[in-house]
C-alpha cells in the first residue's frame, strides 16, 4: 500500500462512534484512493450512515480520526469539510423544500459566491460576476445530467429518481474531490438502479472524482464498486474486491435472513 499513499484521498483510523451504550461504528479503518469507487455495504442498522455522518463532521467520533488528503479533519464542522472537497447526499432525500431545481444547485455554490451580506445585497460588481458564473456553472451541471429543462420547477415536485439525481448534482456543485452517496439507489427498480450505477461511473470520469457509496443490497453495487467494506453491527466483517466479498462466509451469514 505504501507506494499508493500519495494518492490516498480519504482514510479513517480506529473510527468509533458510540450512542450511549450502543456502538454504531466500531474500529472502522478505511482507505480510499483517488478515482476509486468504493462501496460500504451491510444490513439495515449496520452503522453505514453513522460512518458517513462521522466522516462528514455531523457527529464527532467517540474515538479515532478521519483524514482527508493527508489532513486531519476530525471534529471540523461539516461546512468546513465540504469546503475542503468532501460532498455528500442523504439516505432520505433532503432537498430544499421551497426552492426550484436551479436554486437547489445554486445554494451549493454559495461558498464560491459569498462576498458577505452587503456585497450580495447591494449586488456589487464582484458579487455579480460570481453569481453569473455560478448560474452558468449550475445550468451546465443540470444540462450534463439531463435536468436543465426542469430548472425552474420546484425540486420536491420532481419524480423520485430525478430528486435523487438532483441531490447528486447539488453535491457536485460544491466542486468536491470525493463524493459520498448514501443509498443513492434506494427506492429504485433494478432498471433504474442499473442506470444510476452507469451514471455514477460517468460522473466519476467526467469530474475526476473519487466515490464512496453506501448500499444495503449487495447486488446493486457489485458491478460498479472496485472495492467494498462490509459492516455488521458496526464491525467491519470483510473488505476486498466484489468477487471475494460475495464468497466470504461471514458476509453471507450477515446477509442470511436479511435479504
Amino acid at each position: 500500500m505504501s507506494e499508493r499513499n500519495s494518492d490516498l484521498m480519504l482514510s479513517t483510523v480506529h473510527l468509533t462512534m458510540r450512542f450511549g451504550g450502543l456502538t454504531a461504528v466500531s474500529d472502522f479503518n478505511l482507505e480510499i484512493h483517488k478515482n476509486e469507487i468504493v462501496g460500504l455495504i451491510g444490513p439495515n442498522g449496520a452503522g453505514k450512515t453513522t460512518a458517513f455522518n462521522v466522516i462528514t463532521g455531523m457527529y464527532r467520533p467517540s474515538e479515532g480520526k478521519v483524514f482527508f488528503m493527508g489532513r486531519d479533519i476530525t471534529g471540523l464542522k461539516p461546512h468546513s469539510i465540504t469546503a475542503l472537497g468532501v460532498a455528500r447526499t442523504f439516505q432520505n432525500i433532503r432537498l430544499f423544500r421551497e426552492m426550484t431545481v436551479l436554486e437547489n444547485v445554486l445554494v451549493a455554490c454559495h461558498m464560491s459566491i459569498d462576498t458577505g451580506l452587503f456585497g450580495a445585497t447591494l449586488h456589487l460588481p464582484g458579487y455579480r460576476a460570481r453569481e453569473a458564473e455560478a448560474r452558468r456553472f449550475s445550468m451546465e451541471l443540470l444540462e450534463q445530467v439531463g435536468l436543465a429543462h426542469l430548472a425552474y420547477e420546484k425540486g420536491t415536485s420532481l419524480p423520485y429518481g430525478q430528486q435523487r439525481r438532483l441531490e447528486i448534482v447539488r453535491a457536485l456543485a460544491t466542486r468536491p474531490k470525493i463524493l459520498l452517496l448514501d443509498e443513492p439507489a434506494a427506492g429504485m427498480n433494478p432498471q433504474e438502479s442499473f442506470e444510476l450505477m452507469d451514471f455514477i461511473r460517468r460522473i466519476r470520469d467526467e469530474f475526476d472524482l473519487t466515490i464512496f457509496l453506501i448500499e444495503h443490497h449487495m447486488q446493486v453495487v457489485m458491478g460498479v464498486c472496485e472495492r467494498m467494506y462490509v459492516l455488521d453491527y458496526g464491525v467491519t466483517i470483510a473488505h476486498g474486491d466484489p468477487a471475494s466479498i460475495q464468497k466470504n462466509p461471514k458476509v453471507i451469514e450477515a446477509y442470511l435472513g436479511v435479504d
Binding site: 462528514t56 455531523m58 464542522k77 461539516p78 461546512h79 465540504t82 469546503a83 460532498a87 455528500r88 442523504f90 433532503r94 432537498l95 430544499f96 423544500r97 421551497e98 426552492m99 445554494v107 451549493a108 454559495h110 461558498m111 447539488r170 453535491a171 456543485a173 460544491t174
Partner: peptide, 10 residues
Amino acid sequence: DDELAAEAMG
C-alpha cells in the same frame, strides 16, 4: 428549509 443539508452544502 433544511439546516443539515445547508451545512452539508458548505
